[in-house]
Design a protein around this nucleic acid. Structure first.
Length: 268
DNA sequence: TCCTTATGTACAA
DNA sequence: TGTACCTAAGGAC
């Protein structure tokens, strides 16, 4: 689940259920018990998200959450069921509960530490304060592939393996092209597309990247939903025919992640 | 019941 | 570049 759109959606959902209330804060699994005891009964004043980092605001401190590859969050109404022994953090008030499992990070941090995290992250297409030119300055100076640069959170924050593969497909760009060979106009178009795709991702809580004219329905094929919840052009479609040109979708290891692209549609 | 895999990151060598 | 970390689902036996 967790690319940037998931985290921004979680920030909204945590705020809707708990902002302005003083939830019970517990750590059934135990790894966050000391901090939970400090926060228990304090008011959650708001939430924030930058890239894949989620922040829950309490007086004088923040809970910093990063889901990593496995982290999951589940919301529910009262009465909350007994927590299972993998729940790292539970918030519960008179109407809702939310459980966090398997995060890479769940830590209590100061304002200053939060500020430092923002400082090391690149612009986030889902944040109003984002400066896409800051990303282009790094990209246009780099010999690294555009596929790797899009996954580098210091360059752009919030893009993960699905949006990376899909946005490069939508712009017909070979994932192995060097960042320095990307034109300013190409970057502007990619950025605008990421903003639109990721906003839609927050709204629908899933990743859909296929244009209306390319859906199976529009192309006279049987309806199909990919097993990650949305509909995509190339992500995890290795060896299947491209929706547009019919070429077999290719896959390769790039920086320990699976890269997917269409050799017919992404030639340069 | 075991093995693989996953939309991620950090750190060691 | 490799490895460690965190969890759960699905598939092979």
């Amino acid at each position: 689940m967790p690319e940037g759109h998931t985290i921004h959606r979680l920030a909204k959902d945590y705020a809707a259920a708990f902002s302005g209330t003083a939830p019970r804060v517990t750590s059934p699994q135990g790894k966050f018990s000391d901090a939970a005891a400090l926060l228990d009964g304090g008011v959650l004043h708001g939430t924030d998200a930058h890239g894949k980092h989620l922040f829950l605001g309490f007086a004088g401190s923040w809970i910093h959450i990063h889901l990593g590859l496995f982290g999951k969050v589940d919301f529910g109404g009262t009465p909350a069921p007994p927590p299972t022994d993998t729940v790292r953090l539970r918030l519960a008030n008179s109407t809702s509960y939310v459980d966090l499992r398997g995060p890479t990070t769940c830590a209590l941090i100061t304002d200053g530490e939060k500020h430092a995290i923002h400082g090391r992250l690149g612009p986030d297409p889902l944040r109003e304060d984002a400066d896409p030119q800051a990303a282009f300055r790094r990209i246009s100076r780099s010999r690294t592939t555009i596929a790797a640069l899009l996954m580098d959170q210091k360059v752009v924050a919030g893009v993960g393996n699905v949006y990376r593969a899909e946005v490069l497909f939508r712009h017909g760009i070979d994932p192995y092209r060097a960042g320095k060979d990307l034109t300013s106009a190409e970057w502007d178009a990619i950025w605008a597309d990421l903003v639109a795709l990721m906003r839609e991702g927050v709204r629908l809580n899933r990743i859909d990247t296929v244009r209306p004219e390319h859906t199976p329905e529009a192309m006279g094929r049987p309806p199909r939903v990919d097993d990650h919840g949305g509909e995509v052009y190339v992500y995890r479609r290795a060896n299947l025919p491209c929706h547009i040109c019919g070429s077999g979708i290719r896959t390769a290891d790039l920086a320990a992640r699976n890269l997917f692209w269409c050799p017919g549609c992404q030639r340069s």
